[in-house]
Structure formats: C-alpha cells, structure tokens
Design a protein around this nucleic acid. Sequence first.
RNA 1: GGCCCUAUCGUCUAACGGUUAGGACAGAAGCUUUUCAAGCUUUAAACCGGGGUUCGAUUCCCCGUAGGGUCACCA
Length: 451
Amino acid sequence: MSTIVTRFAPSPTGFLHGGNYRTAVFSYLFARKNKGRFIVRIEDTDRERSKKEYEDNIMDSLAWLGLEYDAQYRQSDLVAGHTKALQKLIDTGNAYISREEAKDGSGQIRELVRFKNPNQRVTFHDIIRGDISTDTTDLGDFVIAKRIDEPLFHLAVVVDDASMGVTHIIRGEDHISNTPRQILLYNALGFSVPQYAHLPLVVDEKRSKLSKRRGAQPLTYYRDQGYLPEAILNFLSLVGWNPGTEQEIFTKEELMQLFDLERVQKSAGFFNIEKLNWINKEHIKRLTIEEQCAYVERFMPSFITTLPHYTREKLLLIVPLLVDHITHFGEIVTLAERGEVAYYFEHPTYSREELFWKDDKDAEHTRQKLDKVIEILQKIPSDNFTAETTKDALWGYASEVGKGNVLWPMRYALSGRDKSPDPFTLSGVFGKEVTLQRIELARQLLLAPLS
RNA sequence: GGCCCUAUCGUCUAACGGUUAGGACAGAAGCUUUUCAAGCUUUAAACCGGGGUUCGAUUCCCCGUAGGGUCACCA
C-alpha cells in the first residue's frame, strides 16, 4: 500500500475561521493516523485578493494548533507546471484558447483557456457520503486559465494534487460540486483520480456556513482569548466526528491514534462555543500549576501586576482559586476588572454594612466574633498557618455560635468582597500576619462611631 | 430556479432491523456550604411527515417537507 498523502490548501484571501481549521485538523489527523504525509499548500493563484498578512496568519494558526506539516508549497511558485499541463491539454485537444472580451467592462480581449467538456456523467465515491453522481453537461466548457500562464483554481488544484501525490482529498462539502469538473481534468491529463472525503459544513447558530462576514472569528482570536491549542484541537476534531466511545476529552496523541474517516458525520456541525468552553476548562484542569500560572501571568492586567505586594510566589498560591472561575485565560482580565483579584495583593477597602451577617446588624456582636477569631488564630504558629489548621482551630467556635456569624465577617474582612473563596483558604494564602492585619482592620471599622 | 448534499433531545452526538432510544454541553432541582465558584446526585428534553419492504423499522427504499451547499475570467 502506498503512503497516504493529505493536504490542507487554503487560499490566503482572508482570515480563516474554525470551520476551515477543522478541515485542516481532519486532514492532519488522517495522515498521522495512517503514518502518511500532510502537506500545506497556499493557494494564491488569485493575485489580487491574496495577501501575505493572511498567509502569515494561516501559518501562525497551524503552528499554534500543532499541525506540523511535512511540506509546504505556495501555488504561485508552481505556475510553470500548470502552464505545461495547459499546453498538454491544448495539444491533446482537451482544451482551447478562447478569445473573449473581459467581463470587467474594459473591452479588453483576453485569451482564456477553456476546457473542452466531454459532457459525461461523472460518478465518484466519497468516503463519507458514498457515490455521488453528476451530469457535467451543464458545466459547459469551463474556464481553466485566464491566460496560459495564469491558471485558475480547478486546473491548479488538479495539477498540484497529482504532482504532489495526494491520495486523499479531505475538504469541505462546499467542494462537492467542484469535484466532477476536477475529475474531468484528471482524466484528460491522464492522472489517476484520488480518494475524496467531503466533510460536513461547520455552521453558525443560524445554520449557515461559518463565514467572517457573519461574525466567525479567526482562529487566532481564540489564541488571544487564552484558549489552549490542545483544547481547540480537541473541540475541532469533535465537530463532525467521534470515536464511538463516551470519551470527549482527548490529547493530540489520542486523536492521532483514534481518528477515522469512516466515523465522520454526514450532517453539518455547529460551532458551539459553550462546549468549547467546557472542553477548554477540562484541558486547563489537566495543566500543572506552573503551566496554569504562566498563562495567568500572560493575561494579568498591569494594574494588578504593579501592585506593591504582587509577587509570582503569591500568584502561584492563588492560581488554583482563579482557575476555578474561568473557562479561558482571557477571563482573568474580566475577573481583575470586576475587582476579584486585587485584594489578594493589597488590603481591601471595606463597607461597614457588608461586614454584618444577615439579620444581626449589631456591631458589638460582630466585633466580639472577630475578637475571638483573632484570639484563636493567634495561637497557630505562623509556619503552620494553613487552610487546614485555621479551619480546625475555628470550626468548633463557629459551629457553636453560628457559622455565618463568624465566618461571614471573617471572610469579608479578608477579601472585602461579597463573593470570594472561603476564609480558611484565604487565610492559608495570606499567611498569619496579613490575615490578622486584615481582621484587625475590619474590627477597627466596627469600633469607629457611626457617622 | 437547475444540480448536489443532509435530517435523533436546545446543541454535539451513540445506535449500523428487535434498546426503558444511551452519553456529553447547556437548563432545572437537590446535596455540600458563611458567599461565589467548583464538586456530587437527581431531573426534564429527540427519532421531520407520509407511503412502502419486513414478523418487526430511528435504522433499508420511494415521495414529500425543511435546512444547507453550489451554479465566476474566486478559491
């Protein structure tokens, strides 16, 4: 059996969205699964619309996703071969030069190369959909080059795929209608026709093909939002495919092992951001604390990192707390902006009213509770001041006089927030000195006369 | 409109003639709990319609219906 060769052939005429990369992922996975080769070919035959910026974005995205390729081509470098093929088609009577007025209204006469359509019924076997049959008569003598040295899509694709030995063409369903005319070209050129697998489309919430016009984001958007590449790979591979088990979280290696064209869906898949968020969170949980911390640092806004008590050691302690509240690391920014990060690195400012637990608004009562908390915590040695030891020390007292009465003011004293991790966790993170300082600060507030 | 493709919970999907139609995300409820989150448990939720074939159809065939793709001197 010959080596399997697949390719990803994007045109750099815009930013590519998740649906496009899903195609790349399937081609890549199929090649790797079968120990084959994966080729990237930039289809830039449309010189007006192709831009280096887009090409760079595509290559960056592939690298980020981890889709390493065995070869990379730019179609514009391959024009000599296309011209040769065109000449051959003309020589064999399968194509002809047609002098026509340009459609742009300029009145200019162009020497288009048209394919002499044999008007056959073309049937091909699609790995995903089975046999697909079309009558090519209504295609007419379609144009395959603007000039003999200016090839168009169909011609260029066929010549390149044949010369690169591509065995499996894995692409979107929107190419189904292109396939018959490309097969006609394969036949006329005497090349053997590759296998086809047309993937179901990836659609948006309105059930239509993902497109930038309709708000689909380029893949780099997700990178910039702090999604993990392995999570995106995982998510993309599951749009239109599943291994038939109940496993949903996969590493890249597992995907390379499991992927199978036979199990690809026929119907369109929805780019479901909520599922992506869940998958991303699952992957975040599988990271080491160090790795999580590196991501958090990358997204932490400077108004936090410039706080006087901000240190990496401290950040390392709070990373698990932060990670609990996000699905992607970009959310660190919102968390910080909502004021849910700063209190870890500086004393909070308090609202007296918030210090009271539910209906007991009596300052004297609350102050007594805090006094007792301070008294109990004082006895814990600072080198053993952890979430566990503080909880053990306080639990009995709190249970006795009502947990809310003790733990709410304590927690509020530590965070200055109506929502935060529990007071024991915070104590462990802050250490004895800071913990006692903050509780004392809140206690002072209760001693001050009401204004 | 022509041609082509598709059709299971809101979403991603399992099932490859016989199941109480399974799982996951999202939703709801409960537990836990000082708050938020996380976690655990429970729950609601689907075979597009009509004909066949068959002892038996979600599954196979046909016709509808709906959705999508494509009809370039773009790719």
